[in-house]
Structures are given as C-alpha cells and as structure tokens.
C-alpha cells in the first residue's frame, strides 16, 4: 500500500501520525482514502475539489504538477509526500 508523509503542520489532523498508509493507484485515489480516514485533512488539502496553492505533493520525490496532477499514477510501494510551500531557506 502507498504511504503518505504528513508534514508537521498537518499532524494534528492525523492524531500525530507522520506517515499514513492509504489504498489507491493514483494520487487522487490515495487522497480520497486518506481524507476518509482523517476527515479534518480535507479542507486543509482541498479547495473546491482542487489542491490548495500552498500544498506541494510529490510522488517518489517528483512534483505531481509535472506528472499528471491528482491523476498521477502511484505504485504499491510508492511514497507520497505533502509539503507546504515556503520561502526558500537560504535566500
């Protein structure tokens, strides 16, 4: 089952878990399963059914904007990471 890494800022919605497994073969399917298990995440991640602008999602370290968005394929052992968008660390 794919795993989803939850950033610290969202862990209050997963009972403190930093890593959650969820079923699915696309990012969208995995996220559906994720928000079913942790309903508070829905409005953190989505706005009108689309990912919020300050959320970056990576499958196996690759930004899904450059793959196929929520339709990006996810393998059974893949890691999906949710990361907040921030100003750069060393700028």
């Amino acid at each position: 089952m794919p795993t989803v890494r939850i950033p610290t800022v969202l862990r209050k919605h997963t009972g403190g878990e930093g890593q959650v497994s969820a079923e699915g073969t696309t990012v969208g399917e995995v996220f559906d399963a994720l928000v079913t298990a942790h309903p508070d995440l829905e409005e953190q991640l989505f706005e009108d059914g689309r990912l919020r602008g300050f959320v970056n999602v990576f499958v196996e370290d690759e930004d899904i904007r450059f793959i196929d968005g929520l339709d990006s394929p996810v393998g059974a052992d893949d890691e999906i990471s949710i990361m907040p968008a921030v100003a750069g660390g060393m700028a």
């Binding site: 610290t8 300050f54 959320v55 450059f66």
Partner: peptide, 30 residues
C-alpha cells in the same frame, strides 16, 4: 527543509515567491 524553516501553524501561511514561474520548469524534484 527542517521544521524550523517551515515554521507554519497552518498551510494558509505558506508562501510561493512571486519571482518563481513554474511554467519554465520541466519538473521539480524534492
């Protein structure tokens, strides 16, 4: 980054620099 760089209380405090134009990128890799 480490948590100290993010330093966010919620995702709405996130920030995408106006200078960044994602259209020029072929991919972004973490």
């Amino acid at each position: 980054y480490g948590d100290l760089v993010y330093g966010l209380r919620n995702l709405d405090e996130g920030y995408v620099p106006e200078v960044l134009d994602l259209d020029v990128l072929d991919s972004r890799i973490k």
